[in-house]
């Protein structure tokens, strides 16, 4: 059976205490919800000299909306996003992504920070946060820094969070009125990694696209990725623009044959969900 190795466990009372613990240990391991962290301990994938439970830190809690901007503490549970009363288009996109995470029980356990930091390409929140242009507030002993989520992931399960840093909060502006949003997750086996996830936001003025953001994740890509769509601003979108966006998305395909499908299948799925996303958020202009 799977049991964790002998560990030392601390539940610090403040971020600064947590940061001190991080700095004092050579192989510290942060857990919050534990759905992946405890599993990795059980699998003995790591042997930390200290497990630091930051799941209850008050400073990492809460969802606030100030000056048209959301601040979501990294230890906020996934279900809190879903249960939140915020309902702008941006937050609604995040809600939909949150309600696609795992299952109802796992959503009661897992945290927003965990979903963002694990770096599993098939996690649900990263594509939504990419589309929302979220800034990650990262705290370290020397202070805090902000990093756009688009430069956070450097490979599967790898990101730019340093060993002695903690993701404090996730911040994004509510795109507000006139935006349409879309989120879709495609998987073959439930609770296995998804094949492809897509998140999209768009604003169309008259017939012209004012803003379009599409991000994809899933096992079909290396890391959750934003599709380059800035060129579309001011254009009346037709078939040609749709095909160009679909092509830009499919170029992100990692395209390896594995249990999540053949290279061809994955490419096809990226194209399909990108098209669905585009048509849904751009709407009836085609």
């Amino acid at each position: 059976m799977l049991y964790p190795p002998q560990i030392n466990y601390e539940r610090p009372e403040s971020i600064s205490e947590a940061l001190s613990l991080l700095n004092e240990h050579s192989r510290p391991f942060l857990i919050a919800g534990g759905t992946i962290g405890v599993l990795n301990l059980k699998r003995r994938a790591l042997s930390p000299d200290l497990v630091i439970d930051i799941g209850r830190l008050k400073e990492l809690k809460g969802i606030d909306f100030r000056d048209e901007k959301y601040r979501i503490g990294s230890a906020v549970k996934i279900y809190e996003i879903i249960d939140s009363e915020f309902n702008g288009p941006g937050f609604s996109l995040l809600k939909k992504a949150a309600s696609s995470v795992g299952d109802p029980l796992l959503r009661n356990m897992g945290t927003v920070g965990g979903n963002v930091c694990i770096g599993d390409p098939s996690n649900d929140l990263p594509p939504a946060l990419l589309a929302l242009g979220a800034e990650l507030n990262i705290v370290g002993k020397a202070g805090s820094r902000n990093l756009n989520i688009s430069s956070f992931y450097i490979g599967p399960y790898r990101n730019l969070l340093a060993k002695n840093e903690i993701l404090g909060s996730i911040n994004f502006a509510e795109p507000g009125k006139g935006y349409r949003w879309f989120y879709y997750k495609h998987y073959i086996r439930h609770l296995d990694h998804s094949v492809v996830n897509v998140a999209a936001l768009a604003k169309v003025e008259g017939k012209k696209i004012d803003d379009l953001r599409i991000a994809i994740g899933g096992m079909s890509v290396r890391v959750p990725t934003l599709i380059e769509t800035s060129w579309i601003k001011g254009i009346t979108a037709g078939q040609e623009e749709l095909q160009r966006v679909v092509k830009l998305a499919s170029e992100k395909c990692l395209c390896l044959d594995d249990r999540h499908g053949s290279a061809e299948y994955k490419k096809n799925m990226i194209e399909k969900v990108t098209q669905m996303a585009f048509l849904s958020v751009v709407g009836g202009v085609l």
Partner: peptide, 28 residues
């Protein structure tokens, strides 16, 4: 549709969790 255990070229089983083996859930 999707349930199986597969083996890689080295003969190592690929599904390592009950979900990866494709046991179905109610909503499927």
């Amino acid at each position: 549709l999707y349930e199986s255990q597969t083996y890689n070229k080295e003969g190592k089983p690929e599904a390592q969790t009950i979900s990866e083996a494709g046991v179905p859930y109610a909503q499927q």
